[in-house]
Simulated scan of single mutants.
Amino acid sequence: MTDEDRQVPAASLSGRIAIVTGASSGIGQATARALIQAGARVVVADVNQGAGEASAQHLRDHGGDAVFVPCDVADAVQVQAMVEATVARFGGVDILVNNAGISGGASLLHDLDIDTWDHVMAVNLRGPFLCAKYALPHLMDSRGVIVNVASTYGLVGAPGAPAYCASKGGVVALTRQLAVDYGPRGVRVNAVCPGYVDTDMGGSRARLGPEGQAAANARREAAAARQPLGRQAHVDEIARVIAFLASGASSFMTGSIVTVDGGCTTTFNHG
């Protein structure tokens, strides 16, 4: 992806109010940036206060209207408070991007710690449920949009990822169900399923040390090289699709599960 490719403008979101969870880094940070570039005002919601504040400040330094609100998406009290803070600051909610997520590491199911399973489900599936629950009354008022960030691992089986696959499969099913109930109420709900993206989910790669990081990235690069486009995505390539789904350019889309995966789910991964 070239720098020129990254400058393709999104459809206008002028004046729209967006919540992006997990927006302190990676896809969430890129999404917040893309929405602001399209004219939206953005709440950066993240459990990491330091990184979240820095992300919001960076957006403001570049002319955006952004504010950080601390939030653990697995905590109902914090989610409700985050939505209320958004409404108090901006006057409503037009867009909810449920991006916050964790990988949960790699394990066969019979070796998987129960607490790890519960934590992955709490962040990856309970989180979108809670955010939608408290945002939907406002989204119905604004005829707004939800974009859920699922994964190709929610569509296919993947080795050593039972909790992550199950949680992201739940996000896919929840997306379709919410589209059924809330389309007649004026709210569109879609999901993106990224494939291999050059990002460090939950900081897991950073904890490996230099050699571990290099090895982990090499494994991802090798896997990505076997798919049709032959590389990992840049976070901006995912963010641009999310911005499209958040905009009026996708006005007749709801319940759609959009793969942004370099073609990896179209073919066997011969490895």
Score class of each variant (00 low, 15 high):
residue 142 S to Y: 03
residue 149 V to M: 07
residue 115 D to C: 10
residue 137 P to R: 04
residue 137 P to S: 10
residue 120 V to L: 01
residue 158 A to M: 13
residue 147 V to I: 13
residue 139 L to R: 08
residue 149 V to G: 04
residue 137 P to W: 06
residue 115 D to V: 09
residue 126 R to P: 03
residue 148 N to H: 12
residue 165 C to S: 15
residue 156 V to Y: 13
residue 156 V to K: 13
residue 121 M to E: 02
residue 162 P to Y: 12
residue 130 L to K: 03
residue 117 W to Y: 07
residue 154 G to D: 11
residue 125 L to T: 12
residue 129 F to T: 03
residue 160 G to D: 09
residue 161 A to I: 03
residue 115 D to N: 15
residue 136 L to S: 04
residue 143 R to T: 15
residue 127 G to S: 07
residue 123 V to R: 01
residue 137 P to E: 10
residue 126 R to A: 06
residue 159 P to F: 12
residue 121 M to I: 15
residue 160 G to K: 04
residue 158 A to S: 15
residue 130 L to V: 10
residue 128 P to I: 10
residue 110 H to L: 13
residue 135 A to K: 05
residue 158 A to Q: 13
residue 148 N to Q: 08
residue 123 V to C: 02
residue 159 P to K: 13
residue 157 G to E: 10
residue 118 D to T: 13
residue 162 P to C: 12
residue 134 Y to Q: 07
residue 156 V to F: 14
residue 111 D to Q: 07
residue 133 K to C: 03
residue 152 T to A: 09
residue 134 Y to D: 08
residue 151 S to C: 08
residue 127 G to D: 10
residue 121 M to L: 14
residue 151 S to L: 11
residue 148 N to C: 11
residue 112 L to T: 08
residue 124 N to Q: 03
residue 153 Y to M: 13
residue 146 I to P: 00
residue 114 I to S: 12
residue 162 P to L: 10
residue 156 V to L: 14
residue 163 A to R: 10
residue 134 Y to K: 04
residue 119 H to P: 00
residue 140 M to S: 05
residue 150 A to S: 13
residue 134 Y to E: 11
residue 118 D to C: 12
residue 114 I to F: 11
residue 159 P to Y: 11
residue 120 V to G: 00
residue 159 P to Q: 14
residue 155 L to Y: 03
residue 137 P to I: 10
residue 110 H to P: 03
residue 122 A to M: 00
residue 149 V to P: 03
residue 113 D to T: 03
residue 138 H to A: 02
residue 138 H to N: 04
residue 164 Y to Q: 01
